[in-house]
Amino acid sequence: MRKESKVFVQSVNRIFDIIELLSKEKNGLRLTDLSKILELKSTTIHNLLGTVIHRGYITQDTETMRYRLGYRCLLLAEKFTENDLLLSAASDHLTALNKQTDELVFLGIIQKRDLICALKIESNRPLAVNPDQQWKNQFHSTASGKILLAGLPPREAEAIMEKHGIIRFTARTITRRDLLFEELQKVRQNLYAEARDESVEGISSLAVPIPGPAKPVLAALAVALPSIRFTDERKEELLHLLHDTAEKISMQLCAAGKNISSGNSVNP
């Protein structure tokens, strides 16, 4: 019985490996690609895919034979957004902010001491930021990461730095712990954070905190753009829009929190 349970868990883990891998590939992957990347036999992957394809979580293009995420993944994402208090409150406001700025806007949160992009809307401009950048270990080199670190107790911020280290990504990355904590003190005083070419050369970001009903910093609201567009004038314009949007999200969260405490549903 224990042996069967172990095999079952391994199969589930492998299915999630496939789903997460396909989520990063806009053009999908062939069976041979999956086999090579995951270092599994094609027959093993084919057997795993059977059930998830039947359930609609993965689909296969009959012409290219490439596998992609299916419509059921989209439905799950929509339900998650509806049921998550923060994402539900932020979704429409991020859409409005994206239209106002025409830049990549996103919501940063901490999950298991990783920096996670919980929600993002891409820019339509020809010169834009790559929306697929992974930030989980870049607390010290992104504006959203600095906002979130600044809102933590010092011991928890230290624990995050201990987990990820302070890696140099560019010549402008802060790699000294004392300088980083000086930067975080400025963030607390100014109520915003910025990062110019610190994570990726040519990319800058600006972020402000979103206070929650019970936390001074529940999430970071951020915008990322090519550094060539990040002038002082543009910075002031974006800061105004970010603070205004963060305040609207925070007010909606507080109102929803009151509805929860009184026993009412937060969903319309």
Rank of each mutant, 00 (worst) to 15 (best):
D102S: 04
T95K: 13
A90P: 02
P126M: 03
S141A: 14
F169E: 15
I167G: 12
M161W: 10
I167H: 14
I160W: 11
L107W: 06
H140Q: 05
D61A: 07
V52N: 04
D132T: 12
G56S: 07
R55P: 00
Q100E: 12
L119V: 00
L119N: 03
L69A: 06
L119R: 08
T170D: 10
R176Y: 15
G165H: 13
E183P: 07
A118N: 04
Q138W: 05
M65D: 11
E63A: 07
D114H: 13
R68E: 00
I58T: 14
N47L: 12
D114T: 04
K163C: 04
G108F: 05
I109Q: 07
L76N: 05
G165K: 09
L94I: 04
E122C: 06
L74T: 10
H140V: 00
E162M: 14
D178I: 15
C117G: 01
Q60L: 04
T59E: 14
M65A: 09
L87C: 04
I109V: 14
P131M: 02
R177S: 13
R113I: 01
H93W: 02
D132G: 10
I121K: 02
L76G: 01
W135G: 03
L97G: 03
L76T: 07
Q133N: 09
S88M: 05
Q100N: 11
D92M: 04
C117L: 09
P131R: 00
F169R: 15
G151I: 11
S123T: 03
L94P: 01
N47S: 13
P153R: 09
T62N: 10
N137L: 10
